[in-house]
Amino acid sequence: MPRETNAAKRERAIEFCHRMNERYGPVECFLDYTTPFRLVISVLLSAQTTDAQVNKVTPELFRRWPEPEMLASASVSEVAEVINSLGFYKTKAKHAVQTAQMIMADFGGKVPQTMAELTRLPGVGRKTANIVLNVSFGIVEGIAVDTHVHRIAHRLKLSPKTHENEPLKTEQDLLKVLPHEYWESVNHQWISFGREICQARTPHCDKCPATDICPSVRMS
């Protein structure tokens, strides 16, 4: 098969985004939160854990430590006890407390609003920072590439095979192929699609609205 041109790939990526928008429209954040601080902590806790599991532990977590100044003075062991149903809960508890401490010490108790500052926070990488900037502050600097977005990007062949194990490089590939106005909606719409249709083990290609533009169709 002839190699796809960059223009054709871009057109296909945009068309996929249009179809996701038609199917899902605006999608709210899947994590329960009320403030930028609580969103930072919730996304930090969600690494390699489902949003539903995080939403089960955060009511008690934020009941005990609702603001950064309170969590900053919390015992890591007590936080770990509250979130012990999550994967890697001990490390996440340490990062949550350290993040609250840095927010207090370096940012006057306010969640910072730049990528560079957010990624200084312990346990906060580019994916988390993208979500916080987008959802809490309406700042769109990139695309949060979680497991669903990563999987879909590669099934659509919008990112090369050499980047299959590198979400940060996959993000850069998506940023190159999609115009800026599409970045904001990708994460939550593609997560919805990944959960409903383009699942990891058994993608429901027979129900997919994009089979005609997907190079990885598996029709049963």
Rank of each mutant, 00 (worst) to 15 (best):
S46T: 11
E141Q: 14
V140A: 02
S42G: 15
F30E: 12
N55R: 03
L61R: 07
S220V: 13
M1G: 14
P66E: 10
L121M: 06
T5W: 05
T50C: 03
S192Y: 10
A96M: 07
K56T: 04
V145A: 10
F107H: 15
K127L: 08
G138M: 02
T147S: 14
P160N: 08
V186Y: 05
E141V: 02
V27I: 13
K157T: 02
M20R: 03
V57N: 01
T99F: 09
C208W: 09
V177I: 15
Q48H: 13
H180V: 13
K169D: 03
N187M: 10
D51Y: 07
Y24A: 04
D212Q: 06
P122K: 06
C208S: 12
P68A: 12
R151I: 04
Q199Y: 00
F137I: 03
A129P: 11
E141F: 01
T49F: 00
R126P: 08
I131W: 01
Y24T: 03
S159G: 06
V43H: 09
H150A: 13
V124L: 06
I191R: 04
S42F: 09
R126E: 09
A129T: 07
E164D: 14
R201H: 13
C17I: 12
D146M: 10
A7P: 00
R12Y: 06
V140C: 04
F37S: 10
L71E: 10
E166Y: 11
C29V: 06
M115T: 13
V27A: 04
N55P: 03
M104H: 01
L174I: 08
G138Q: 05
V57I: 15
V111Y: 04
L71K: 08
R19F: 01
F37H: 11
L133R: 08
A47W: 04
E28Y: 03
A153L: 08
C205K: 10
E67Y: 12
Y33S: 05
R155S: 03
R63C: 02
P66K: 11
E117R: 07
G125P: 10
H148D: 09
L44G: 07
D173W: 00
T170A: 10
E78C: 00
D212Y: 02
A72V: 07
Q53N: 15
E78T: 06
L86Y: 07
K207S: 13
P167G: 05
N55Y: 03
K161E: 15
P26L: 05
L71P: 05
P122N: 04
Q53I: 00
L71W: 07
Y33G: 05
H150R: 07
D51E: 14
R195Y: 02
